[in-house]
Design a binder for these strands. Sequence first.
DNA 1: CGTTGTGAAATGATTCACAGCT
DNA 2: AGCTGTGAATCATTTCACAACG
Lengths: 218, 218
Amino acid sequence: MPVRPSIPGPTIKRLTLYLREVERRQMEGQTRISSGELGRALGLTDTQIRKDLSWFGQFGQAGIGYLLDPLSMRLREILGKDRIWKTAVVGAGRLGQAIMSYGPFAREGFEVAAVFDANPEMVGREVAGHRIHSMEDLGTVVKERGVLLGIVSVPREAAQEVADRLIDAGVLGLLNFAPVRLEVGDRASVASVDFSSRLERLAFQVSAGLKGSIDGED
Amino acid sequence: MPVRPSIPGPTIKRLTLYLREVERRQMEGQTRISSGELGRALGLTDTQIRKDLSWFGQFGQAGIGYLLDPLSMRLREILGKDRIWKTAVVGAGRLGQAIMSYGPFAREGFEVAAVFDANPEMVGREVAGHRIHSMEDLGTVVKERGVLLGIVSVPREAAQEVADRLIDAGVLGLLNFAPVRLEVGDRASVASVDFSSRLERLAFQVSAGLKGSIDGED
DNA sequence: CGTTGTGAAATGATTCACAGCT
DNA sequence: AGCTGTGAATCATTTCACAACG
């Protein structure tokens, strides 16, 4: 993985979108695509796409475009999707359940390897094919199964402690759904999904009369 | 709402975090805060916070900091949280249910005013205190109840059609959970929560050995 | 020709540095 | 002394413009 200067965050985000679109088109039997066509599908400019890809070498053919097979393979490799990521879901409430049963999850190279919940009534039950473990077993189960990523879907108050325990057990990355900043120092990577911040920003956009998609962030 | 030049997207995102932190401290009885203290809590610099706030006038007191009461009031006003936003949830699967029963939702000025699902077995049932309506009734119910925001928690394939129907019914903003770009032209505002893109970016961060929080986007 | 790849220019956002208020 | 508000400088990202290629 030759990544000399550091790749812009926004580029990484778009790479995930390229891969998704490319894979969809592969399934439909398409074999090539130009940066212009891909851009139209995703609401981006052709230049942006070529610039993003140029960070990782040259995969296109001038006058033709990109072949989908090598492109998707390279994107998977860049994004670390050429392996299976074992994840632990902590918090088996409605959100945790929604995440576990999210269809694309498994197909996209992520495996729910363990599920934990603090509620004694949940422990032992099965949700979406996964047996729920007690929080007390978190350390041992996470280590035993070689879990690398943790999904934090617990209430705000419990999030930091869950993060600490996951990291102590050897987890390298956390996906945080709680509305707090997790303090992890340099012990792990953190990404957040902040549902209510997003909703608030939507309300702002509407108030301000801004129309169209305004993602980019978060 | 005096907003002359256009406010940076990242600023708006941070404003939602400021408001959240300020409100928490208000509940704890605190009455003032400096940009430095707020920054420390949120992992941001003091300068950044002052610059963000400066887009909306001057609320601070040199030598003292910011008074929490006027600050939170002004932030709510800026973000459009000085009113109740009626929302419709379309798709009452596990994700839709998780959203509806999300505690902070109501407290934060958003009201679930209607819920719809395409599955006939769901229609008529109650989830988290909300009666599920048939998709056929979407247009009439949304209009009747004056719904302004739509939450799209349906499978990818159905998302665009749901978006179109919500917009036709008068909805001004969409919060999209499906992994597609919704095409809305200038008929509405869209914000997306892209769970799998986030997870993929987390995997990338871990592969690349990048530590610490890396949000910002999405 | 249509399309890629990429330096150079333009735009956007953050950080610096400091004047000014309490 | 402690802190805000802000223009100027820096840094990051996007867009432009165009040479090179099939």
